[in-house]
Amino acid sequence: MLGAMVAWKDVEAAAPEFAARVRRIFDAHKHKTIATIRADGGPRISGIEAEFAGGELTFGSMPGARKGADLHRDPRFALHSPSVDPPEGDPAGWAGDAKIAGRAVPAGEVGGDTEGELFRADVHEVVRTGLDDEATMLVIEIWTPGGGLRRVERA
């Protein structure tokens, strides 16, 4: 898989239960956060909507938006799920948060009534951070195309 574009469907095929957990976290709320790289090399954080459909992870950029210009100049991005607090009195009930990093590939115009450009994600890394069932340690799950799924636990 290294060298070829990695679509969301490839993550689902390689680690289906992990991909489902990550997608639930992303789908729980409409707005996400994306990090891109400015022309001067500094980071830019922007709000964004993203969609999992047809085996792809896609997101758009409005006409003239800086994040779109950033992605054309340097396609690297990091997308962060909505971040919510654990339920009061039930830390083990926290779904966690998730991140997807990779390269944005231009995919034409955004469909429908919205103007803008659509990007597809070439996925390089997917991370889910949460708690174990007893809520006694942090659990970090990391998937990469070349390394598969691994789990790190921190007390």
Score class of each variant (00 low, 15 high):
Arg76Asp: 12
Gly93Thr: 06
Glu125Arg: 15
Ala135Tyr: 00
Val110Met: 15
Ile25Tyr: 01
Ser83Lys: 09
Glu12Ala: 08
Asp133Asn: 09
Thr58Met: 12
Arg21Thr: 13
Asp97Val: 09
Ile25Arg: 02
Thr33Lys: 07
Glu56Val: 04
Ala92Asn: 00
Val105Thr: 07
Ala50Val: 12
Arg21Asp: 15
His29Asp: 11
Arg66Ile: 15
Gly93Arg: 06
Pro63Glu: 02
Gly93Tyr: 03
Phe26Arg: 06
Glu56Asn: 04
Thr114Gln: 12
Val127Ile: 14
Asp90Glu: 12
Arg120Asp: 01
Val110Ile: 15
Lys9Arg: 15
Ile48Ala: 13
Gly64Lys: 01
His29Pro: 00
Asp27Val: 13
Ile34Ala: 06
Arg23Cys: 05
Gly102His: 12
Glu134Cys: 03
Glu134Phe: 08
Pro63Tyr: 04
Gly64Glu: 04
Gly41Gln: 01
Lys99Gly: 12
Gly93Glu: 02
Lys67Gly: 06
His72Ile: 12
His31Asp: 14
Val127Cys: 05
Arg73Tyr: 04
Val6Thr: 15
Asp122Cys: 00
Ala14Phe: 10
Gly112Thr: 01
Gly64Cys: 02
Phe59Trp: 15
Arg24Lys: 12
Phe119Val: 07
Ala28Ser: 15
Arg24Ala: 13
Glu117Asp: 14
Gly96Leu: 04
Gly102Val: 09
Lys32Gly: 08
Val127Glu: 13
Arg120Met: 01
Val11Arg: 03
Ala39Val: 10
Thr33His: 06
Ala7Thr: 06
Gly116Pro: 01
Asp85Gln: 04
Leu79Pro: 08
Ala95Asn: 08
Phe59Val: 14
His72Ser: 10
Trp94Met: 00
Ala65Arg: 09
Glu12Ile: 05
Ala65Ser: 14
Gly41Phe: 00
Ala35Lys: 07
Arg120Leu: 05
Ser81Phe: 11
Arg38Leu: 12
Pro43Cys: 12
Ser83Cys: 10
Gly64His: 06
Asp113Ile: 13
Ala69Met: 03
Glu117Cys: 08
Glu134Ser: 11
Ala28Ile: 01
Val22Asn: 02
Ala50Gly: 14
His124Ala: 15
His31Glu: 14
Gly111Trp: 00
Thr129Ala: 09
Asp122Trp: 00
Ala65Glu: 10
Val11Phe: 00
Asp133Arg: 14
Gly108Ile: 08
Lys67Leu: 10
Ala20Cys: 00
Val139Asn: 11
Thr58Lys: 13
His72Phe: 13
Pro87Lys: 01
Ala7Arg: 14
Arg73Gln: 09
Arg38Lys: 14
Val22Ile: 04
Phe52Pro: 02
Met62Thr: 09
Asp10Arg: 03
Pro106His: 02
